[in-house]
Simulated assay, not measured.
Amino acid sequence: MDALGRDLRYFVAVAEELHFTRAAERLFISQPALSKQIRMLERYLGASLFERNRREVRLTPVGRALLPHARRVLAEWDAAREATERAKAEQRATLVVGMNTSPGRGGLLPAITSRLTAEVPDVRLMLRQVSWDDSTAGLANGSSDVAFVWLPLGDAERYTWIVVAAEPRHVALPRTHRLASRETVDFADLLDEPFLALPPSAGRLRDYWLALDARGGRPPVIGAEIAGADETYEALVGGYGVCLLAVRNAPLVTRGGVVTRPVVGVSPSRLAVAWHTDDRRPLVQAYARAVRLAVGDGGPDSPDGDSADGDNGGDGAGFGR
């Protein structure tokens, strides 16, 4: 198409200028080179396109018939090339991956990345740490393209996700707490304890980590609000309350003076990779395919009732916010 497209472009320029010298200047080529290409096109078509004399250049009937079609072909070709360049740029673009805590459970992140780069070698990934007060890890405000999130998500209908890990929830306690000596803790024994809570902006996730569904309608006692791992640790050792977290996130807070214990009577936590349902960009869809390959499951990637409620699991997650 490149050679024919070039010749059609030359023909259109001459047809519009009706002057070979002006058309050559417009095309940034020499007039003899332009005349040569037009003659080659005429030979290819088997007909003259222009009538030439010393005073003027005019289109022949064949030239007039060709002109509107040549313009359409060139317009479609230009549009096709632009679409191709956009697609190539999207394939090469940076993909921003949001997260609230590290998703590196059992090599999960490297497994996803290796599968993505096998499909899109030029991809550039930017990992973005987002405060716990944004339960979507940057999806809601568009600062992340895909994100590792903890279920349940607010505005679940806006997102599609794949559950990549599930873990039992533990309770983090000061080492001096009356329940710290137990091997397991029944959630019923925590109902009157002050809890550390995510900010209200975390929405449904705040309720989930307070285990509202396991309280039988009894409201939680909020000892303090936390929006990061350091704040959580300081609040725990300061005796402001206890908190639920996923077992693999225990190292975030067990730095000295804090212990974690399994909790009976609450559902597992679930970690998912999520993106906007209406985001059809090739790079986002490639990341979703890489996630599916990494977890070995075409999986629970729709915001149905169970996924949105965050009450059933797969294989490992955490107190993520």
Rank of each mutant, 00 (worst) to 15 (best):
V295M: 06
R9T: 05
A235R: 05
S269Y: 03
V247K: 14
R321K: 09
V266Q: 03
N249G: 13
L191K: 05
R255H: 14
S302H: 13
R178H: 12
L196N: 01
A166W: 00
D301K: 14
A288N: 00
W132C: 06
E193K: 12
Q37H: 15
R22W: 06
V259S: 11
V273A: 05
W275N: 06
H276W: 11
N141S: 14
D311R: 15
G265M: 10
R128C: 11
L190V: 11
V291A: 02
V120F: 00
V263K: 04
L8W: 01
P32Q: 14
V263S: 05
V291D: 04
G238V: 03
P121L: 14
S307H: 12
G256F: 06
Q31L: 10
D2T: 12
A308N: 14
V266S: 04
A317D: 04
D133H: 15
H177V: 09
P152R: 01
H276Y: 09
R6N: 07
V97H: 02
N53Y: 02
D279S: 08
G257D: 08
P262L: 03
E17Y: 05
Q91I: 12
D278Q: 12
G316P: 00
V247T: 15
P103C: 06
R52G: 08
Y287V: 13
V221R: 09
P282S: 13
R255T: 13
E76R: 01
I222S: 04
E167R: 15
V123C: 01
L66I: 10
G107E: 00
A65Q: 10
V242H: 00
G265E: 05
D186F: 02
H69G: 13
R248Y: 07
E119C: 10
L125G: 07
V258D: 02
S267H: 13
P303A: 08
P268E: 04
E90C: 13
S144E: 00
V12M: 00
D306F: 13
A172N: 07
E42M: 10
H69T: 12
E25S: 12
A235Q: 07
A188L: 11
V123K: 04
R218C: 02
V120A: 03
E157F: 01
V273Q: 01
T113F: 03
Q129Y: 12
P262D: 12
L18N: 04
D301V: 15
N100G: 15
A214V: 11
R280T: 14
Q31R: 15
A23Y: 05
F50S: 00
R6M: 12
V295Q: 02
G305I: 13
N100C: 09
V264I: 14
P121T: 13
A166Q: 09
G63F: 00
R289V: 13
W150N: 14
